[in-house]
């Protein structure tokens, strides 16, 4: 009976509904004492009622679920190209700095997949900025004056004005931090270092690589923080003021703050749009309570956080999947919505999930974009789901909660383009 209880979980369908009221409390974990220096930032869904100042609508109109999945597919394919080293050769896709960039962008059309935002402050005096968080990119940036629309987009806060910040400076072309931009470099103009970043969903930002004080919380400030002062953006950022890069290369916030916070960070993405999560820089020095797996690096692209998958269980039963299917590793990404698995693994997961759901007789619903296993739960007050557990190299496992199994009534997984990808 205990095994059966761990194999299935029953959840109220009311929990699938999107609430218009924010349960505005930081989780207990965020408030708990942490050894050493740490800065804890409030993290929210950009379109939920907990968005900064309660102005979710100001952060861009919520995209349709189908549009989100379309953008998600472009991002997933882009990451896979970068990790495999094929990005430079792929038509229509490019690494930052490519001179042959072709970017399908829709100015002001908010279908970006970066769904989580934090508020920090920039400059002296400090000016609040609401930024998307992205573990899949390195360079942080904000829109800066002058920034006419277009080529910039409208944002909820006043544009950051570098001329009004006493601690601001443009990075000179001769500076080491300019030459270290490498793929993100965009030449030199008037002695100032130019930057450019292109994202997998087709968005771009260009401007002046700059330095200023970044205030994370009232008592945690980072002097000389390097970021992009964006003067031309295209694409999918409508409403937000910029982006906070949490990738692994030297330009990211994590790298720049490593002398203070030890290169350690964690985040908690809230289970619903009306609850609050957090990002913690620094924090617990021990891994007590965490299920851990080695961090790996893709030789083709050191930006990404990569782990090794070892297997998947559905309803407590391990799926029969050859370990070689997972040999390419898995990118842990906050900006991709739906987990992508090699087709062989996805097929096994889908079959096991459908079989486990069959006894309950839930009506099927049409596929939604890339999601092909959907149900109509409208006649049900509660639904019972098989648990899904993802195992990692070294024995770690994620036993997914209900918020990690379904999205919009569909199994929240999708296949990659091929087992060898």
């Amino acid at each position: 009976h205990a095994d059966a209880a761990r194999s299935y979980v029953t959840v109220s369908t009311s929990s699938f509904a999107v609430s218009s009221t924010c349960a505005d409390e930081l989780p207990g974990r965020a408030a708990s004492p942490r050894n050493g220096t740490s800065a804890v930032l409030r993290l929210t869904h950009r379109h939920g009622p907990c968005a900064p100042a309660g102005k979710a609508s100001a952060l861009g109109s919520p995209p349709s679920f189908l549009d989100t999945l379309r953008a998600d597919q472009r991002r997933a394919e882009y990451i896979q190209r970068r990790v495999s080293g094929a990005a430079a050769a792929a038509p229509g896709m490019q690494l930052a700095g490519s001179k042959a960039a072709t970017v399908p962008a829709n100015l002001g059309f908010s279908i970006g997949t970066l769904q989580y935002v934090v508020t920090v402050s920039l400059g002296t005096p400090a000016v609040a900025q609401t930024l998307e968080v992205d573990t899949g990119s390195d360079v942080s940036w904000v829109q800066c004056k002058p920034c006419p629309s277009p080529p910039c987009y409208s944002q909820r806060d006043p544009l950051f004005d570098p001329t009004r910040s006493s601690s601001y400076s443009a990075v000179p072309c001769a500076a080491a931090s300019c030459s270290q931009l490498a793929l993100y470099s965009n030449g030199c103009s008037g002695g100032q270092c130019g930057y450019v970043v292109s994202y997998g969903d087709g968005s771009t930002t260009t401007g002046v690589y700059s330095s200023d004080t970044l205030t994370l919380t009232g008592s945690n400030a980072l002097k000389g923080f390097l970021f992009g002062c964006g003067h031309a953006q295209q694409g999918l950022f409508a409403g937000v003021d910029g982006l906070l890069g949490l990738g692994r290369q030297g330009q990211s916030l994590v790298s720049q703050a490593s002398s203070t916070y030890g290169g350690v960070f964690s985040y908690c993405l809230p289970p619903t749009q009306n609850s609050v999560g957090y990002i913690s820089l620094g924090g617990p020095s021990s891994t007590t309570g965490f299920s851990t797996t080695p961090l790996l690096t893709a030789s083709n692209d050191p930006t990404y956080y990569i782990v090794m998958l070892a297997g998947i269980s559905v309803g407590g039963q391990p799926l029969s999947i050859d370990a070689s299917v997972f040999a390419s590793g898995a990118v842990v990404d906050t900006g991709t919505v739906v987990t992508r698995l090699p087709p062989t693994a996805y097929s096994a997961l889908r079959s096991a999930f459908r079989a486990a759901m069959a006894p309950y007789g839930y009506p099927s619903a049409p596929a939604t974009g890339i999601l092909d296993t959907c149900y109509d739960f409208t006649r049900y007050g509660t639904v019972t789901l098989p648990t899904i557990s993802i195992a990692f190299g070294g024995g770690a496992a994620m036993d997914l909660g209900t918020s990690g199994i379904l999205t919009s009534g569909c199994l929240a997984f999708a296949p990659t383009g091929g087992d060898s990808q």
């Binding site: 290169g263 999560g277 080695p294």
Partner: peptide
């Protein structure tokens, strides 16, 4: 490569320290 997306990361605290990635369930 597979990609672990944000739907599956929800409610976990995900921790990076330069050599490991950690997952703690029901943290938010």
């Amino acid at each position: 490569a597979s990609i672990l997306g944000n739907v599956q990361q929800r409610s976990f605290e995900v921790r990076f320290d330069g050599s490991t990635v950690g997952f703690m369930p029901a943290s938010c």
